[in-house]
């Protein structure tokens, strides 16, 4: 009994010291990480909406893919939306920021957060990767959600990371549908 108690107390002590140390490190790093994320979001919104501004973010409560909508304003008039989308990738959630016209057409997109494999799924972070979706999303030109919907060169680019491609595509297609069907 005594041995079990001593063992438990020692293990607890190790865990407590580790938790305290991690708390201290978190206190130093948390503000920097939060600041970096805000900067990234601000920069991405500016890059997605050149010559326009974005209004106050609006939470989208019922849609599991569309998290937030930022109205895009030109001369005070709403001309489209930037959507914060969540998709499912190979290593976890994909966080995508995409600008849509009122017709549902994708004007620009950027992968903000992911846990994809370096050199494979991570390629989706590059602006070149997202270019394959630009111009799609309307009723006549749907978002490519299968490799055979892509031109040969772009299909080559997604080889080895099909799950990432599907995750990005499905999230962008859902964003497009959301905009086309009156943001529902």
């Amino acid at each position: 009994m005594r041995t079990i108690l001593i063992t438990g107390v020692k293990l607890f002590a190790i865990c407590a010291v580790a938790a305290l140390a991690l708390g201290a490190v978190n206190t130093v790093t948390e503000p920097r990480i939060a600041q970096y994320k805000i900067e990234q979001l601000r920069q991405a919104l500016a890059e997605l909406t050149p010559g326009a501004t974005t209004g106050e973010p609006m939470e989208v409560p019922v849609n599991p893919t569309v998290v937030t909508r930022y109205p895009v304003l030109e001369d005070g008039k709403e001309v489209g939306s930037v959507l914060d989308l969540v998709g499912t990738g190979y290593g976890g959630d994909l966080r995508i920021l995409a600008r849509y016209a009122e017709s549902g057409e994708i004007l620009a997109a950027r992968l903000m957060e992911d846990e994809e494999t370096p050199g494979l799924g991570k390629k989706a972070e590059t602006p070149e990767y997202m270019k394959m979706y630009v111009g799609t999303g309307t009723a006549g030109d749907p978002v490519p959600v299968r490799k055979d919907m892509l031109p040969a060169r772009e299909a080559d680019a997604v080889t080895g990371a099909t799950i990432t491609f599907l995750g990005v595509s499905k999230a962008l297609a859902e964003g497009s549908r959301f905009v086309r069907q009156g943001r529902q």
């Binding site: 580790a18 140390a21 991690l22 490190v25 978190n26 130093v28 790093t29 920097r32 990480i33 970096y36 290593g91 976890g92 992911d114 846990e115 994809e116 494999t117 370096p118 991570k122 972070e125």
Partner: peptide, 23 residues
């Protein structure tokens, strides 16, 4: 604990490397 320290420090001070290495 040490891995969490590395992860937090990389996210705060070398975010691009942290993004590249991911999980």
């Amino acid at each position: 604990s040490f891995v969490t320290v590395v992860d937090l420090v990389m996210q705060a001070f070398a975010p691009s490397v942290s993004k590249n290495l991911g999980v």
